[in-house]
């Protein structure tokens, strides 16, 4: 018999940490937990031991939909030639400010 039952450690959660107020939450890693409250406290204990965060999000890992890495060309390259989305595409006459 196995020592640890399948699923014994709960489900897998993705953890996002906001390191300072006002900046975006960033993916930090994972924890296992049986419910959201537990996932939050686990994430607090695991990922903010060195004052890394001021806010935490947790979300069950199986709810994340990801694009596939090897398809990344098709997914992201079309944005490459759309330079008109960037301010440097446009010329501004010499001496004109605040644009």
């Amino acid at each position: 018999m196995s020592h640890v039952k399948e699923g014994a450690h709960g489900i897998l959660w993705e953890v996002f940490i906001q390191s300072k107020p006002g900046i975006p939450h960033k993916h930090a890693g994972n924890v296992h937990a049986h419910d959201a409250e537990q996932a939050l406290t686990n994430a607090r204990d695991v990922y903010t031991r060195r004052m890394e965060g001021v806010s935490i999000w947790v979300i069950p890992a199986n709810l994340v939909t990801a694009s596939a890495g090897e398809d990344s060309d098709a997914f992201f390259d079309p944005a490459e030639d759309k330079v008109y989305r960037h301010p440097t595409f446009y010329t501004v006459p010499e001496g004109v400010k605040y644009l």
Partner: peptide
């Protein structure tokens, strides 16, 4: 009892 709680108890 499980890694996460080992860490919590130690904290």
């Amino acid at each position: 009892p499980v890694l996460e709680h080992d860490i919590a108890l130690t904290n």
